[in-house]
C-alpha cells in the first residue's frame, strides 16, 4: 500500500479539522455526577472499617479471656460481676415498668433492629 503524499495528507487533515470534537448532551455532567453520588450511597458500608476493627478487638479480647481465665471464681470475673450486679440493682431499685411501657420498648427495639436493613433495601431499590 502506497503512502499518502503530502498533498493527500493535507486534504485529510483539512477535512478532519472541519468536523472537530463531538459533544455529549447538556445534562451529561449532571447525569454522571448523579450516578456517582448514587453509587457512593449504595457502597457506603453500614459498619465502617474502624467499627469492624473495634468489633474484632472486643471479640478477640472476650475469646482470650475465656481461654486464659476459664474457671469460675476467677478474681477478674468476680470483680466485674460483683460491680455489675450491685450497679444494676442500684440503678433499677424502686423502678416499676408497666406492661404497656415494656411492649413499647420492645417494639422500639425491633424497629431500631430493622432500620439498617430497611435503609439498605430502599437504597438498593433506588439504584435499580
Amino acid at each position: 500500500m502506497e503512502k499518502l503524499s503530502k498533498e493527500q495528507e493535507k486534504v485529510l487533515k483539512t477535512a478532519l479539522a472541519q468536523i472537530g470534537l463531538e459533544k455529549p448532551s447538556e445534562d451529561f455532567l449532571s447525569n454522571v455526577m448523579d450516578a456517582i453520588e448514587m453509587q457512593e450511597k449504595v457502597t457506603t458500608p453500614l459498619i465502617s472499617k474502624k467499627g469492624w476493627l473495634l468489633i474484632t478487638f472486643v471479640f478477640a479480647l472476650s475469646l482470650s479471656l475465656l481461654v486464659f481465665y476459664p474457671e469460675e471464681g476467677s478474681v477478674v470475673f468476680d470483680m466485674v460481676f460483683s460491680y455489675r450486679a450491685g450497679f444494676v440493682e442500684k440503678l433499677f431499685q424502686g423502678l416499676e415498668i408497666s406492661k404497656t411501657m415494656m411492649m413499647g420498648i420492645c417494639l422500639l427495639g425491633l424497629f431500631l433492629f430493622q432500620l439498617p436493613f430497611l435503609i439498605k433495601m430502599t437504597d438498593k431499590e433506588r439504584s435499580l
Partner: peptide, 18 residues
C-alpha cells in the same frame, strides 16, 4: 472533593465522547 471530579469530567468529556 466530588466537584474536582466534575471539573475533570467537564475538561475531558468531549474528547472521550468523540
Amino acid at each position: 472533593d466530588t466537584k474536582a471530579f466534575a471539573s475533570l469530567v467537564t475538561k475531558h468529556q468531549n474528547y472521550v465522547y468523540t
